[in-house]
Design a protein around this nucleic acid. Structure first.
Lengths: 229, 229
DNA sequence: TTGCTCCTCACGTCACGTGAGGTGGC
DNA sequence: TTGCTCCTCACGTCACGTGAGGTGGC
């Protein structure tokens, strides 16, 4: 893949990405794409995943690139990613994957109930409420994944504004409907046995769900502007 | 008032303000505090209000300082500043919150129907469908804002995956429910006549709606992982 | 007198953007 | 051959932060 196609893939999810930014990220040692004999950058799927990771962390956690690079180096060496930032910063979690090896590590993110409560800074009653409304579902062995951590943390912060889990029930239904829409698009790709088709299906899932989330955000913003006008 | 007291006054509302930032804002011509004979800056209440305006516009609209300075000059000349009672835009922070001219332009956009169609790269039939489902609503004068552009472009990209406007109807309802939730939190703040309370209300709107969008995104991701597992 | 705040000025930094001038590829 | 994409390298920019070295004020 050349740099232009990478841009095309990423900018649905990250609208402010640019060619010069991708080149800059390579310059800073965050990706190392191969080169063609003529010097053109050749990005692999893993490279794109890596960029996605960088852009996601940058957007969601406001970490400087130097720190993100250190995290990536730690991940490449199979080490645990360092805890991010100060007391209020959540542990760095993403299932947007990095390389196949590090992606496995992210997918394997396992938190006990106690760890989840501590890292999300929430109480057991709030977690129980979130579970009872289906906003968080533990694995069969009782552990929780990275998404559960994000949900718990966010719900905790919303609770500080007086928004309780029962107010969030509708979120689950809306999310399920959107996921269903995405699945409808991706299902035909998934049915193929080709492993490359499977990779494309995963890429498409991310892309389309990114578009859905973007649409959702824009509509919430519109509704709020209309409401306060 | 000396610069330290000004800092103390502002940093409850704007946690990232600093002495060097205030000095920098003076350097850029955004405030002109008096000086004591010894050279110490002496800020009046009007100066502090001016700083509050600058910091607020910077935070809520991501305008570059050069543009804010022009607005202030217009205000000084008795003209209406473009964003005085303008759009409350909880534009979700991109990467590190750095302002870009294109973003600022998008926030204040006024687009005709033809411009919207061109810039979003969509056809008139798609726009009409989006309007009929309430996903895009033009202003009373027939123009469209930046959010409409985002919605149109995103819907266009989704259409490329076979997802049509009628599939997106549910998004509107979900967004309206979320906006209602945010409004419930903010309403008590808005009812106060204090201008500082109004600023806090706007900030809270931004913060809570950001949390809602984050929760939504996490739940969509969860649902997709559960679905394909 | 002490300790604190404030001053200027120069330079550093972070995350890019912008050409200029040139080459590769269908 | 044309037009497009890609390349490097140097420099610019935006919004500050960071000392160094010095003065003011209760």
């Amino acid at each position: 893949m050349n740099i232009g196609s990478v841009l095309g893939l990423l900018r649905t999810e990250f609208p402010d990405v640019s060619i010069s930014k991708i080149r800059f990220l390579e310059d800073q040692g965050l990706v190392e794409p191969e080169r063609t004999p003529a010097g053109y950058r050749k990005f692999s799927h893993a490279d794109v995943d890596r960029l996605r990771y960088v852009l996601g962390v940058q957007r969601d956690h406001y970490l400087p690139l130097r720190v993100i690079r250190d995290h990536l180096e730690a991940l490449d060496n199979g080490l645990e990613p360092p805890v991010a930032g100060g007391p209020r910063s959540p542990r760095l979690v993403t299932s947007n994957g990095v390389s196949s090896a590090t992606q496995a590590a992210a997918a394997e993110h396992r938190l006990t109930r106690a760890q989840l409560l501590e890292q999300a800074s929430v109480g057991g009653d709030l977690l129980q409420a979130l579970e009872s409304f289906g906003l968080i579902v533990p694995r069969s062995d009782g552990t929780f994944d990275g998404d559960a951590l994000v949900v718990a943390r966010t719900a905790g912060e919303l609770a500080a504004f007086g928004i309780e889990p029962r107010h969030l029930r509708a979120f689950r239904g809306a999310a399920d409907r959107e996921a269903g829409l995405v699945e409808q698009v991706v299902r035909p790709m998934r049915s193929q046995r080709d492993p490359e088709a499977a990779a494309r299906a995963e890429e498409t899932t991310r892309e389309v769900s990114g578009l859905c989330v973007r649409l959702h955000a824009a509509l919430v913003k519109t509704a709020l502007e209309r409401g306060s006008a």
